[in-house]
Simulated scan of single mutants.
Amino acid sequence: MSTGNVADMVTELREQIESGALQADEKLPSTRVLMETYGLSNNAVYRAVGLLKAQGYAYGMQGKGVFVRGRRALIAGSRRIKGITHPGEHIEWRYSRRTEAPDWVAEHLGAGECVERARTVRRDDVIYEASRSWVRLDVVTVVPELDEPAPCTPTWQAVYTERSANEVRSISSAAYARIATDDDREALNLDGELHAVLFTRTVYATGDDVIGVGEAVNAPGQPLDLEA
């Protein structure tokens, strides 16, 4: 099959993983095979594999390739929106505040004031993810907890869906690796050494109406293998 579409590649591989057609710890096809199968450039395949990693469907091993993560370990997309966590995970709220939308946020939500929230996720004593979300002010009328100095349980998306009967879903996601910034190191409690982290941005909508955006940075765990 040749689609030339990153989203189709991600969707098809994700479905194969969830169905068990691709088994836990099975190596994904090589970049060349994926390029030929989906009609994509090597850079497009790297982006698609990066999304699978960011969504928890795959992991890289330096010098060996990219492998399927066990389905029991998967928490992504609608499951993450619903607030599902792994055993041993602990979500820590950092802050909630009214703020002017940054430029990239304003491109999705419109210019002006919005609600910015930040949290971290721990596994035991390790902070492995730091995330922020920006939410349109009209969502606060449905989810007033957004303005409160406390976590919104399980997530603001899940609460909005339940109260409004309008499902919130992720409509786009982009992921790439970068060297940790000072803010990344502070949020993830990293030392001063150079670290590669995975950075993602996600857009949330109900119907065709974008109501929030988010970004997350994941701490280094297994080495990132961008060329696999």
Rank of each mutant, 00 (worst) to 15 (best):
R117P: 08
E100G: 05
D124L: 05
W104L: 02
G110M: 12
W104Q: 02
Y128C: 00
E100Y: 12
A106L: 05
T99L: 03
R117F: 11
Y128N: 00
V115M: 13
D124S: 11
C114K: 01
R122P: 06
V126P: 04
E100L: 10
D103R: 10
V126D: 01
E107Q: 09
E116Q: 14
E116K: 08
L109P: 09
I127M: 05
D124I: 09
R98P: 04
A106N: 09
I127Q: 04
R119E: 15
V126G: 00
D125H: 13
H108Y: 11
P102N: 12
A111V: 13
R122F: 15
C114W: 01
V105G: 01
D125V: 11
D103F: 09
V115Y: 14
V115H: 10
A101M: 11
T99D: 05
A118V: 08
A101E: 12
E113Q: 11
A118D: 06
R123L: 06
D103L: 09
V105I: 05
I127H: 02
D124W: 06
E100K: 12
V115G: 10
Y128A: 00
V115N: 08
V105T: 01
D125T: 11
T120M: 03
A106T: 05
D125Q: 12
R119W: 15
A106K: 03
Y128V: 04
W104P: 01
G110P: 14
R98F: 02
T99R: 04
E100W: 07
A111M: 04
A101N: 13
T120Q: 04
R98L: 07
E107H: 00
R119K: 14
A101S: 13
W104H: 11
C114A: 05
V126I: 15
R117M: 14
G112S: 05
E107C: 01
T99V: 13
G112W: 14
W104E: 08
L109N: 14
A118Q: 14
I127Y: 02
T120F: 03
V126A: 08
W104A: 02
R117E: 15
R119N: 11
E107A: 07
E116H: 13
T99W: 03
G112T: 10
P102Q: 04
A118M: 10
R119A: 15
D125R: 10
V126W: 03
P102T: 03
A106M: 08
H108C: 14
G112E: 10
A106I: 02
V115W: 06
A118R: 12
T99Y: 00
A106R: 04
R98A: 01
E100T: 13
E100N: 13
T120W: 00
R117W: 09
A118G: 07
C114V: 13
G112M: 06
L109I: 10
E113K: 10
G112K: 11
V115T: 12
E116V: 03
H108L: 01
G110I: 13
A118Y: 05
R122C: 07
W104S: 09
T99M: 05
